[in-house]
Design a protein around this nucleic acid. Structure first.
Lengths: 200, 200
DNA sequence: GATCGAATCTGACAAATGTCATGGTGCAGT
DNA sequence: ACTGCACCATGACATTTGTCAGATTCGATC
């Protein structure tokens, strides 16, 4: 009997996924969690074989969760199930020792199948992403990311400078570099590209 | 026996929702669809009592689908199930004669319950949104929306002008108006605000 | 310890963006 | 027919944003 924990912030999707796996006679849904912190609490008091988790959740994301578990002995095998196949996400997940990485676009049957594989020690990576993981890392430096993230919220150059304790010219420079690195035309496009690729 | 059709582009979520409703003995999942057009095809050849649909889907969105069905006689009752509780979405849905509007944040049991209610002719609106529907309509004019949408993709003023056959000054003017109408500081913030509220 | 490269900062200048004043068109109410 | 009002459209002007050349720091390599 494989003991499963599911973490997902959209309650309806969480319930639906639980219903889906509950149909499998060799699995037991021990508990469900609405975010990463709840999942950690469950893990403290229950032995879990496989943790299925979304990435984008409040308080603690699935990636942060996986990174924390990597340190611990006796941690469960982790399967990430996400909407967004951003290369940066997959890369980070692999570095966190995640054993499965699936897209919500994949057929539903794939999930139970993946749980069994991962429980056996295998790895399961969404095939459409398997290649993209190694086409280079993040093209942005730390500062470029900082600045671009704030620009994406609609802050002006001046406000970004104030927030990061930088001169306006410096902020513009980082933005310009980021725009160049991403082959974008302006800060808006640069932000969209970086976001799409999980580089922020 | 209530005959149900589900439209949702994330295959795994689709499968999970189907599994969830299949547990109910008084419902039959007649078919599932990956987008709005597929749903229309099914509706042509199968009698359906209740259509459950996501909003953001490729090719034909759930809102467009609902608007088309409004015209037709013998159309099914429609329940929208969406991630985003944007006021503009709810307003448009209500105008399209939708009978249910739920968030994916709602508990899973709520779904089967809602299907039964709308099948009986009742309306089901996510309580946290019921109020927000009437706090004023869309503050943007058609042209402001057009321009803002393109600006949000990262196009320059010049490119937007070319695309819409407008002078650059005109484009800047609409953007300026939109920025003012939304109390934003620049086009980026304006885009974010408009998007969050479903005004695009 | 000299050299190189990468990342962090900055200001001057050019280009794009935001504001404002103005005019045109169509439509509802008088 | 006239008035008021909302929306569409434009160009002149001021401000913000993007580019570029260069200075500084710090760690890796020879």
């Amino acid at each position: 009997m494989t003991r499963v924990l599911i973490a997902e912030d959209q309650t309806m999707v969480l319930g639906a996924l639980a219903a889906l796996l509950a149909l499998e006679s060799d699995m037991e849904i021990v508990a469900t969690a609405g975010d990463g912190l709840e999942a950690l609490e469950v893990l403290e008091r229950e032995p879990i074989d496989v943790l299925i988790t979304d990435i984008e959740m409040p308080r603690l994301t699935g990636l942060d969760l996986a990174e924390r578990l990597k340190e611990q002995a006796g941690a469960p095998a982790v399967i990430i199930v996400t909407t967004f196949g951003r290369p940066g996400y997959l890369r980070r997940a692999l570095e966190a020792g995640v054993r499965g990485f699936l897209l919500k676009d994949a057929p539903a049957e794939k999930l139970a199948d993946s749980v069994r594989r991962v429980a056996r020690g295998e790895r399961v990576i969404a095939p459409e992403l398997a290649l993209s993981a190694w086409d280079g890392g993040n093209p942005l430096t730390q500062r470029q990311r900082d600045v671009l993230r704030l620009a994406g919220e609609g802050l002006s150059t001046r406000d970004i400078g104030t927030r990061l304790h930088l001169a306006e010219g410096t902020v513009r420079n980082y933005l310009s570099e980021a725009i160049g690195a991403l082959h974008a035309a302006n800060r808006i496009e640069a932000f969209r590209l970086a976001r799409q690729n999980g580089w922020l």
